[in-house]
């Protein structure tokens, strides 16, 4: 009884948490024209406010750090449940996205939404060890309590304070004040002869499902990859091969995959904190390029 009551309290509290994107997009009317989506790279890189000034359209950043395709798929599903379908979805994809060594399915983002058939299906497939417990009282929260308690408390705080907006209102979080995180050096130490990216079937499945979901709603999907720091490329021997496979998926759905390869920022660490993540300086330059790309796209239409 106590656990059942506690579960209901957490259900309520987590849905009140404006900082929890999965909850926020189901409550707030965002109705963006341009939706940016993907893992940490677009999350820390693309500022909707800057984009809007260039494009003249309203944009929202739905991306989340450390998230994989299934995680992104559910966030898009939540977004589309409550908001009009965006005109454009710019979805970040890179060879790392296809490899299970990079990013994860963050089950705890969705604990409060267990019971929704779409959520249940994805949870069962992506985290079966968790899903087998969720029918027991409170276990859907107990399992990842280290991640959830704080969010539930914050949710109660938002409810009591009557808060309506998240800390980062347009979904974009500026990158950390890190000059260079040394991940490339650690990567080279680990794989001095380079690392071969894996193409994971589950990742591909949710990559396709995400595109299909957006297309079903009439959204124009654009896949994109921001510039990769050039000095890292020699250590990724099959990068081009994976890119080719991503293009094949794009071709299957008759959508474009844009790589911003020619940009000068790719030549210097000055604009990066890691191989893929740009720092604030690099992010501004890339957002500007993407903004002009979207503007031209819209004007030409």
């Amino acid at each position: 009884m106590v656990l059942f009551g506690l579960e209901k309290l957490y259900d309520f509290a987590l849905r009140q948490n404006c900082n929890l994107k999965a909850a926020y997009v189901q409550k707030a009317k965002i109705d963006a024209d341009v939706l940016i989506h993907g893992p940490c790279e677009p999350f820390w890189m693309i500022a909707p406010a800057a984009l809007d000034k260039i494009t003249g359209m309203k944009s929202y950043n739905l991306a989340l750090s450390h998230s994989d395709f299934a995680d992104n798929y559910l966030h898009l599903y939540f977004y589309l449940k409550n908001n009009k379908a965006p005109k454009y979805l710019f979805y970040y994809v890179t060879p790392e996205s296809m490899d299970p060594q990079y990013n994860v399915f963050n089950t705890y983002h969705f604990a409060a939404f267990v019971g929704d058939p779409v959520v249940d299906t994805v949870l069962n497939e992506c985290d079966p060890a968790y899903y087998k417990w969720v029918r027991l009282p409170f276990m859907k929260y107990a399992y990842y309590s280290n991640k959830i308690n704080f969010e539930a408390l914050q949710g109660m705080k938002h409810f009591i304070a009557g808060r309506k907006l998240p800390h980062f209102a347009d979904g974009y979080e500026p990158p950390f004040e890190v000059k260079w995180d040394n991940h490339l050096e650690e990567f080279i130490d680990l794989y001095p002869h380079g690392y071969l990216f894996e193409w994971n079937a589950l990742r591909e499945k949710y990559f396709r499902k995400l595109i299909e979901l957006a297309q079903q709603k009439g959204t124009e999907v654009w896949l994109f990859e921001s510039p990769v720091l050039k000095e890292a490329l020699p250590y990724q021997p099959n990068r081009k091969e994976i890119i080719r496979k991503i293009r094949q998926v794009a071709d299957d759905y008759k959508i474009n995959f844009v790589q911003f390869e020619g940009m000068k920022i790719a030549e210097s660490r000055e604009y990066y904190m890691s191989t893929l993540n740009t720092n604030l300086k690099g992010s501004r330059i890339f957002t500007d390029s993407l903004g002009h790309f979207i503007k031209n796209l819209n004007v030409n239409k």
Binding site: L3, A129, Y141, A142, Y143, Y144, S145, N146
Partner: peptide
């Protein structure tokens, strides 16, 4: 018993 179960459920590491 209730206190132990509640603490395990709310603060325990399961995963």
């Amino acid at each position: 018993v209730v206190a132990c179960i509640l603490l395990i459920m709310t603060f325990g590491i399961f995963d």
